[in-house]
Design a protein around this nucleic acid. Structure first.
Lengths: 143, 143
DNA sequence: CGCTTTTCTTGAACAAGTCAAATGATGTGA
DNA sequence: TCACATCATTTGACTTGTTCAAGAAAAGCG
């Protein structure tokens, strides 16, 4: 678990000013991987008090641009954020309860897959989303 | 290119009533693969006159549930629809102009990929989105 | 042809996210 | 240490894509 000093260093290294909303957002995304914006707003407000939703949106955008967090958004879901960046991992999403878990990429670097026919496109990255049922829903529903 | 009779048969086989908005939507999605809802509404209005946007949303939902069309929605894009269903193909999206092209799946049936560690999830399908630059943007931008 | 059910229209409502202007805090250089 | 320029945050309205609800219209069936 990174310390506040780690967060501060991460911000400074990205030429971002160190403010309490940013520290709180960074911390919240670390603690709640794959959380949606509303949850993050809630967590941030719980830790440092009143913050406008706009500030959180803005901070998340700034952190995303800086590469400190990654934005993911499976179909039918609102935007979610995670701090695992740099490694090329993927996600498995539960069709029943919307739970999201990380799945490591076998290759490790992007693009981890090569298209059979790239139609002339220059492919930079392959994003993989596995759809299925999480252990809980699988047991309750798939019986 | 399917004929109106084909569309009619497809609707009947799915126990859907045959109406002009449905025929027009099905035809529009066939003619404009990966079109967003607004484009589809425009195409439908061009072919059969005034239709409420609500009807198109409703028809698209009905067709999606029936499995006649597939809804795709890459990050940062609005909902798009295509009629290639049944085969397990993927998409390549241009980061610059949002163009979408089909990419055939090497395996052909879902799930075409196996996760390295499924975290206990029951995986039914792997959805792959390739991100890159289309030939046009690649030439104009990548010089 | 008439009835039942599904579908379309109309109009409003909703949620997520964005824009813009003014206020406030941060870091920097003297 | 202080002042200043710059960047961040607040506030509040707004846009966009999509959905809800109720009544009118059409499709299919006997």
């Amino acid at each position: 678990m990174p310390t506040p000093l780690d967060f501060e260093r991460m911000l400074r290294e990205s030429s971002l000013r160190v403010t309490s909303p940013r520290m709180a957002v960074l911390s919240a995304v670390h603690e709640h991987p794959h959380a949606d914006t509303e949850s993050i707003i809630g967590a941030v407000r719980g830790s440092i008090g009143a913050v406008s939703h706009q500030a959180v949106y803005d901070v998340l955008k700034a952190l995303t641009n800086a590469g400190l967090v990654r934005r993911i958004q499976p179909q039918g879901s609102v935007a979610r954020y995670e701090t695992r960046v740099g490694d090329n991992h993927h996600h498995v999403v539960c069709r029943s309860c919307e739970a999201i878990a990380d799945v490591d990429c076998a290759i490790g670097h992007a693009p981890c897959l090569t298209a059979s026919n790239d139609r002339g496109f220059t492919i930079e990255e392959a994003e993989v989303v596995y759809w299925g049922l999480c252990p809980d829903c699988s047991g309750a529903d798939g019986s």
